[in-house]
């Protein structure tokens, strides 16, 4: 663990980025404590600039506090990012592991299904799915998970293909271990670092996808997210820049820090890239 931390934080910028990310997460978690009145309460005149009395980040087109909205938006963005990634990793690991371990016909079949998902324009598929399921937090998460898993499945399959040829896996078979046990105790722990890296990158892209959905008005109408904030600010974009730029910066900071952390995890955990 100490060794891990030493390599992970070897680049000084990592500490900065990591601290920024933690700050975003803490703000998101603490939002209901900090701003008990919620993001939809109107607090003053619309389109007040940042720095107006009592309004750190100004107010939006309806006169709601932007700072509160940003904090609550972080909750939705991070929740969707993490939940849909967990879903995508779950499906991807299951199918990738089965395809890679058993190979043959099973592999052919599962990979053709995976390719089917990969060749459909994923955002169009997502919009159809969400519209079909009614826009809500749950449908957004399910939709994003359903369009993201093929990437995980591909990576996990490749890793399983290479690991199953290793002699310790063959040894496990000669010992009489059952397939499920070999997959869970022998191969999966060795594939875990790679899955972790792919997952951390995926959280960032899921946040982006959610923002795009909300921008188009396909997010949960009862919840405020960074994407829906930008969507709602479309009409005021030229007179009140902060209504769209601030949530945009929040998305950028979160996704960038997640990608950076993913990169560092890759350098630290991925055995193929170890010095």
């Amino acid at each position: 663990m100490i060794r891990f931390a030493r390599i992970f934080f070897a680049k000084p910028a990592t500490i900065l980025v990591f601290a920024a990310f933690i700050a975003i997460v803490v703000t998101a978690l603490a939002a209901p404590l900090l701003f008990a009145r919620g993001p939809f309460t109107i607090v003053g005149m619309p389109l007040l600039p940042p720095g107006a009395p009592g309004l750190l980040a100004g107010s939006d087109v309806l006169g709601r506090d932007m700072a509160v909205a940003l904090a609550y938006g972080a909750r939705i963005s991070l929740l969707v990012g993490v939940a849909s990634t967990i879903g995508a990793v779950g499906i991807g690991v299951l199918l990738g592991a089965v395809a890679g371990y058993y190979g043959g016909l099973m592999d052919e079949l599962l990979m053709r299904v995976t390719e089917f998902f990969q060749i459909i324009p994923s955002f169009v598929l997502l919009m159809v799915l969400v519209a079909f399921l009614q826009p809500s937090l749950g449908s957004t998460v399910i939709g994003i998970a359903l369009i993201s898993w093929p990437q995980v499945a591909r990576v996990v399959r490749g890793e399983f293909l290479s690991l199953k040829g290793r002699e310790f896996v063959q040894a496990a078979r000669t010992l009489g271990m059952r397939d499920s046990r070999i997959i869970l105790t022998q191969i999966l722990p060795n594939a875990l670092p790679l899955i972790l890296v792919v997952g951390s990158m995926m959280v960032g892209s899921a946040i982006l996808t959610e923002s795009a959905l909300s921008f188009l008005g396909l997010g949960d109408p009862n919840l405020l997210s960074w994407g829906s904030m930008i969507g709602g600010a479309r009409s005021a974009m030229w007179v009140a820049w902060w209504t769209s730029v601030l949530p945009g910066l929040a998305i950028m900071a979160t996704v960038l820090s997640l990608n950076f952390i993913g990169d560092r995890l890759n350098d630290t955990l991925n055995p193929r890239r170890q010095r």
Binding site: R166, E167, F168, A171, A172, T174, Q186, P189, N190
Partner: peptide, 13 residues
């Protein structure tokens, strides 16, 4: 029936 493998790098998890 048991087996001992060649590559001592990859034969142990």
């Amino acid at each position: 029936i048991q087996m001992v493998f060649q590559d001592h790098h990859s034969s142990l998890n």
